[in-house]
Each structure stands twice: as C-alpha cells, then as structure tokens.
Design a protein around this nucleic acid. Structure first.
Lengths: 163, 163
DNA sequence: ACAAACCGTTGTTGACGTCAATGGTTGTTG
DNA sequence: CAACAACCATTGACGTCAACAACGGTTTGT
C-alpha cells in the first residue's frame, strides 16, 4: 500500500471553467450530491496525505486516538465505522511508522490496545494543517457561516444514520 | 478536480454538539464527514436500486439523459465525471434492459448517440420514488427546511469544484 | 470441562478509478 | 489524393477499496 506512482498534480484538463461539470438539471438530488462529493472529498484528502504515505483512514484513526488515549481495535472499528479487517492494516501501517503502538490489554488477553505514540502526536500536529487545507479547498465556494452550517447539518445527518 | 487552491483563510475547529457514534471529537471535519456520508449514501442508493439490477451510476446516467435528449458517450463521460471506459459498460447494461438505445450520429460516424427509450422513461418515473426514499432516509434527522439548505450548500460546493 | 461469544487476523470477492492500447473515423495538410 | 494527426468508443490491465466469510486464540457462562 505504500506504493504510489501517481505524482502530486499530473492531471490537467484543457478547460475547467464555464459550465458546471458533471451535473446539470435533475441530478442534483441530495443523496447523489453527497455520494459524488464524498468521492471527491476522499480523493482530495488522500492526495493531500499522500506525501506522508498515509491515507484518510489513517488520519481518521490517529485523530480518534488523540481523543481517547488508547482504544481496542474493536472500538476503533465501531467508532470509525470501518471493518475490523480494515483496522488491522491501518494499525499495521501506523505501527510501522512509529505513530501508534499495540499493547496487550491487562485484563483481556485477546484485546490489543492501540495507543498514540509521540511520533504520532507530532505527525498529527503537522498534518492538521493539511487536512484543514483540503476542507478549505473543498468548501471554497462557501463562506465561513455557510461552512459552519454545512458542518452542523452533516454532523446531524451522520449521527443518526448508522449508529 | 484539476486545480489546486491555496486559500489562506483561518478556519476554526468548532465543536459538534454531541458526540454519538463514530466521530467523537475532532474527526468532525467537514471533509471527512462528506467522505463518510458519501459512502453511506452510495451504499443506500445501490441497495435500493439493486432490485432493479442497476446501480447509482446507471441511475445518474439515465437521469442525465432525461434532461438532454440524446448525448454522445463522450459527453456523458464529461458531464457525469466518469471515465469513458466506464460509460461503455453502463450503456451496455442500460441498452440490454431496453432503457436506452445507441444510435449512430448522423454527421459523425464514430460517435454514438445514447438516447432514452420509453422503457427508460418508465423506469425513471418509478425509480424516482426510490431515490427520493433513499434521500429521505439519509436525511431523516433533518427537517424540510434544513434539507433544502443542505441541498443548496452541496450544490454550490459541487458546482465550483475547480474554479 | 464444554459450548458459546468475543477479539484480532487472514483471505476472498466484487466494485471502482486510472491509465495504456486498439480499431474505426474524421479533418487537415502537403 | 495520400499521409498524418486528432478524435471517439471500446477493451484490457493494474492497484485501491469496502464488505463478507472463516480461522486460531481467549474469555465467559453453564
């Protein structure tokens, strides 16, 4: 997974402006927009984090770990919404980079507590700007107030769907 | 999707009201939310359309065809944001179902105009409810006014992707 | 002690996006 | 008119990604 060939910005189309690109009339269903924008957001995030060799998921995991001070992988899976099998690879990568460390739970020997390492903290501090820049780019057409509004709305939607 | 923007505007990481399922504290970045919600939306859409044997992409394509009355595949690719190679399979499926038909362009024999067939219109009318139901389910926690607001915001974001 | 439930891990499958290459077609240039 | 470049639809390959099933190791309940 640490093999990436595409460079930072090789893509450039001849014309971008004029006319909204991919949706004209009725496609503008909210669900569809969400789907499309989600795809795009993921792309942007991953592209931005690519320089660090990580992806959006790694970042999300680190971000969560920063708030809880140690969590079992099961908990990570549940809280982040990723499959347990996905957590394995993620923690593997992060552990290999020294950003997190796995240690056995004292009371339950099948559990493995994943905790943020100092290097992880540092990385988090640095990449914070990156993530912020991505969101900034994504929500460029919106003003500060609108962004906040969108953020609130999305949060509300997110909270009551899968959990 | 082609240009990088370097907007240097300070954004504050305000807190979401309460933390329920999968994002506790800082994850509630708008970009990440978009990514996550997009995934969920895609899932829901595909699950709902599965009974028809189609996917969200097929639906999007039909939806677009309903607005333009015939389009070359190149145009579809450009407008929908899918790769030309993806369009081929999509049109294949839809043609096999009798929802669309490929006809040669009168002036350009290498082009193939994809047009909506009557069966496609019917399906579109039916699946319209389905899509509405999905969006309804997805945006359940939001009121009518909020949905409208979210829709507007998402549209704005979607339209101004690169410039 | 035994079975059921749980945790992390592995492997597989199917969908998706990107890129490279091909055959057929058009427009252009000498 | 002939050769060449650009274009369109199509196919194929490659890597990524998410969802599901299955497996050892471990704990809990009976």
């Amino acid at each position: 997974m640490t093999s990436r060939k595409t460079t930072a910005e090789p893509v450039k189309e001849e014309s971008v402006d004029e006319g909204a690109p991919w949706m004209k009339g009725l496609h503008a269903d909210a669900g569809y927009l969400l789907y499309r924008l989600g795809l795009r957001s993921g792309q942007l995030f991953n592209a931005a984090l690519q320089r660090s060799g990580l992806r959006l998921r790694h970042y999300a995991l680190l971000r969560y770990l920063a708030t809880v001070e140690g969590a079992a992988q099961r908990e990570l899976s549940q809280e982040l919404g990723y499959d347990p099998s996905a957590i394995v690879g993620l923690v593997d990568d992060l552990e290999r980079l020294g950003f997190v460390e796995r240690r056995p739970a004292p009371d339950d020997r099948r559990r493995r507590i994943v905790a943020l390492a100092p290097a992880g903290h540092d990385f988090l501090r640095d990449s914070d700007e990156v993530a912020r820049g991505v969101t900034d780019e994504l929500l460029a057409p919106l003003g500060a107030g609108e962004r906040e509004m969108l953020h609130v709305l999305l949060s509300r939607v997110a909270h009551t769907d899968g959990g």
